[in-house]
Design a binder for these strands. Sequence first.
DNA 1: GTCTATAACAAGATAGAC
DNA 2: GTCTATCTTGTTATAGAC
Lengths: 220, 220
Amino acid sequence: MTGDDRGRGLGRAARGADRRAAIVQAALEVIAERGYRGASLAAVAERAGLTQQGLLHHFPSKEALLIAVLDMRDQWDMASAALHGTAWPLEMIAGLVEYNATRPGVVQVFTVLAGDSVTEGHPASGYFTERYARVRAWAAQSLRGEYGDVLPGRLTPEQAAPLLVAVMDGLQTQWLHDPGAVDMPAVFRDFVALLTAPRAADGTPGTARRAVPPGSCGDA
Amino acid sequence: MTGDDRGRGLGRAARGADRRAAIVQAALEVIAERGYRGASLAAVAERAGLTQQGLLHHFPSKEALLIAVLDMRDQWDMASAALHGTAWPLEMIAGLVEYNATRPGVVQVFTVLAGDSVTEGHPASGYFTERYARVRAWAAQSLRGEYGDVLPGRLTPEQAAPLLVAVMDGLQTQWLHDPGAVDMPAVFRDFVALLTAPRAADGTPGTARRAVPPGSCGDA
DNA sequence: GTCTATAACAAGATAGAC
DNA sequence: GTCTATCTTGTTATAGAC
């Protein structure tokens, strides 16, 4: 991570890394507000406190900056779990959704870029395609770990995985468009209730423990 | 197609309307490919077979063109149902998803714009906020019509509605990113299976017709 | 109704001074 | 490492000829 650290504690290199981090953070914000195409380097640079050309010294192109943003985002959240193949209980995933509801900015970059990148030749296209595959695999693993091979509706974990992911994404979109109209965490828990629903006639193990531990997953 | 229709049956006016329709269609395609911000008037005009300035004669601004695209899209599909408050059985909604899988272009505009419009001051922002509210209401009505006031997982139709919408949207995003990896109609039917799942112990009306066809998540 | 010409501006990127 | 200056290209939109 530290690039050129010449000895001397936190010399130029560390400051350079800080600079980069600040720029990536600024880019994240501007992309959230205006989309990738709408986020000009000048706007990002201004927010980071330098000029467009100063920014280009750290990131040779706009696309390089975008990739840095995506990499940064991947070091948080479930991405780290998904990357390392760690299964999460549904309760923790619900906690993540709850946490996401507290940071619209980050959710917004993700939503904007996920839509944006459906576009031909979009620089984040490959990233998202691969990411979705990984996240589905992770979701399937998580579901299997918790509920075994058969879920309500006779679904397999592999069948339910894309649904779980779709619900998370889709709810984000609705929530961002009208936070007052959609209680994202609550609706997600409704989905969990559906997944863990009574295979017998009523009150069942899955839903009983609904004590909603606050903030199960803070940032990294 | 029509030449210089001098024969005042469908005179200039009709040709003008055709022109407009062709432009809107071109805009739909270009926006699908490059997003709203990336869709230049020149590109749209070229595809419609005129110049950028000729296009501006029909639509005074880029935003006006976007609105025409959204209006056009609203005359198809469930929008007409949602607008008129007509409830659809889930089976018909599944049919819509199946139909959507045959026209990636239209789905793509919707996905791109839904994400795009989360952005500050986006011209389609109001449109989508209102549309989502309408569609949720329509979904709730549809669910209630078919299953009454309580669904599996003890959900009300109002609780399940945003989930239904989220699943449709979220699946579109995954499907567009990797059509081979996500069989959108099949996964949606899995969701329906979940909704109509056994409230009693097993084999039930809703799920009977589906024997977990192999590879629902596999490629198409 | 469609064109040419052009205004007015913003974009990403490069060169080179300091 | 950051700046000023500049090149090149592409953007929306207007004016006016035909």
